[in-house]
Nucleic acid binder design. Structure first.
Length: 305
DNA sequence: TTACCAATAT
DNA sequence: TATATTGGTA
């Protein structure tokens, strides 16, 4: 019963969508279970699954060595033999920095309001990633933000009150609103660097009812109330990102809409992520230690080159 | 009904 | 620890 859909709905009408080329590369493929489960399974393209299917391309390698794990082969088995694709439990997802980056970017650009698992998942466009995966990670991420909010601020500030009228409508505002302490001190440097990169702050009160928000225009990378957290002006933060994409397909309902969405009408679910800024982090997987857990991992699509 | 969220379990 | 899974709720 679950029919997932393949992200192929891109092609949409008008607008100057960048050539498919732009969109295409976006699809990151998560390792497919088959692949993960056994590195060598002979092309089995599963079939039923909408899972990826993609070309796993030759990414199978990576660092050298290491890896013993997996048990690779050997038998494979152990127990599992072929398995019906369904009912298969997938290995734990490993949130690699790149994957996390995508996640954070998606959340940041969506705005707290829309940053819900499903939307994030769709925006990320990562095949194989499930809502549960995102939800779980989102939970942790929120916790992190909250924690940071409490800590980082000291002071200050206080006062946050923004009176901006009530009409805070722009998602932009929402994003950082409520933040008594808008930005982190440039010098941030508590011992222990931050593992994550917070771009959004959490409203102290976000309980109950998602309210409707008017859809509409979306922002360009322009004013970010505070945008540069450790980055200087002009830091690379501009993203030609999904601006429109999100807006268009946004599940955001028209005023008055409560819980009804999927299924209604047509617009939904199609977003073309454009280009994420890829950078940062890489590698370092150090194998040391390791242990050996069978985990699902993601292919750094941009890894090539 | 679906999806979110928070708690809980592994 | 990090992630998955479950339960309750909107």
């Amino acid at each position: 019963m679950r029919e997932e859909e393949e992200p192929s709905w891109f092609a949409r009408f008008d607008e100057d969508l960048p050539a498919p080329d732009e969109l295409m590369p976006l699809s990151q493929s998560l390792i497919t279970r088959d692949l993960a489960a056994a590195f060598d399974i002979p092309t089995h393209t599963h079939g039923g699954g909408p899972l990826s299917g993609a070309d796993a391309a030759g990414a199978a390698e990576m660092n050298g060595g290491a890896s013993s794990a997996a048990g690779s082969s050997g038998g494979n088995g152990g127990g599992n033999g072929e398995e019906p694709a369904r009912t298969l439990k997938r290995p734990r997802l490993v949130w690699t920095p790149q994957l996390h980056k995508r996640f954070v970017d998606a959340v940041a650009h969506l705005g707290i309001k829309n940053a819900v698992p499903k939307t994030i998942m769709q925006l990320m466009s990562v095949d194989g990633l499930t809502r549960e995966n995102v939800a779980s990670h989102l939970q942790k991420y929120r916790l992190y933000l909250k924690r940071m909010q409490g800590l980082g601020n000291g002071g200050g500030g206080g006062g946050g009150s923004h009176s901006s009228g009530s009409g805070t409508d722009a998602a932009t505002e929402h994003l950082f609103a409520t933040g008594p302490s808008p930005f982190l001190p440039p010098g941030r440097g508590p011992p222990g660097a931050d593992p994550y990169t917070p771009y959004a702050a959490m409203p102290a009160a976000h309980h109950h009812h998602h309210h409707p928000q008017q859809i509409g225009h979306f922002h360009h990378p322009a004013a970010r109330p505070l945008g540069h957290y450790g980055a200087g002006p002009g830091a690379g933060f501009d993203h030609g990102f999904l601006s429109r994409a999100v807006a268009s397909g946004a599940p955001v309902g028209p005023p008055g809409m409560h819980h009804r969405m999927v299924g209604g009408g047509a617009a939904m679910g199609m977003m073309a992520p454009s280009s994420f800024a890829d950078e940062l982090e890489l590698g370092s997987r150090g194998g040391a230690g390791a242990g050996g857990r069978r985990e699902l991992t993601l292919f750094p699509t941009s890894g090539d080159h």
